[in-house]
Amino acid sequence: MKCPPFDYHAPRSQAEALALLARHGEEGKILAGGQSLVPTMAFRLARPASLIDINRIAELDYCRAEAGRLRIGALARHARFERLVAPGPTGALLARAAEHIAHAPIRTRGTFCGSLAHADPASEWCCIALALGAEMRVLREGGERLVPAADWFQSVFTTTLGHDELLAEASLPLLGPDWRCGFAEFNRRAGDFAVAMAVTALRLDAAGHVAGARIALGGVAGTPILAEAAAAALLGAPPTSDRLRAAAALAAEGFEPTEDAQVPADYRRDLVRAMTRRALEGSLAT
């Protein structure tokens, strides 16, 4: 459990980092918090020839509300979100989820964007990014593109991020007060990877009817997934207990669960049903 050999670079600017990425291509890997990458290297499951450490690039360290979106730079750590980074439902949801991310020492190192780039299917941030419709700002030497969350996640640990690209920023919509966000996660021990999680967002109109609904599930398939049928079933009516229950049941049936020795598929569906209902109920409880 010692890392294989690698070269180490510590660029001082975004431009320098992008130049290094361009030079190293497939052999290069960005090091931000390192909380997933370094253990993976210690197990020798990842063996990048060059690490490009972006921790000295001050211009990537920010998290600010701007033009209706929360802009999160590549060096914003998990711990930053434990306190409200923005007023309203978005900030509250992030704070709610942050406490589920591993343990305090990991939260002080690991980064929001690093999680999105790593794309662990059980990542809280990935699930929220999909639920709220995050947008990724991706840079490479001489180029930039914006990728919506729906197009970002490809499969387990795989995104559309190219080998020469840096995920410089992720942004989330700052939802208005008519939105209610919910979060529920199941894991064996505090701080463990989620066995199942649900992130929900409901917009209620003046009559108290559901006018918008998003439900994302994490930890249950190769990528976070949207429970679209469950969300659609909630539209146009008040979110009664029975309707929430029915939506949760739809969410539990609408996907192909990951299976392993400890978590059979039908158990994962049980958990999705419970977490979806709890997230929805929790969001409306206030």
Binding site: R188, R189, A190, G191, D192, F193, A261, Q262
Partner: peptide, 28 residues
């Protein structure tokens, strides 16, 4: 409640890290 060493049918251990083999933390 938590700790169990598991083997696949071919004798490969499935609990080779503390992400899979679960000693308790103070929270439990």
């Amino acid at each position: 409640l938590l700790e169990e060493v598991l083997y696949a049918a071919d004798g490969n251990p499935l609990t080779g890290s503390l992400a899979d083999y679960l000693p308790p933390s103070a929270a439990e």
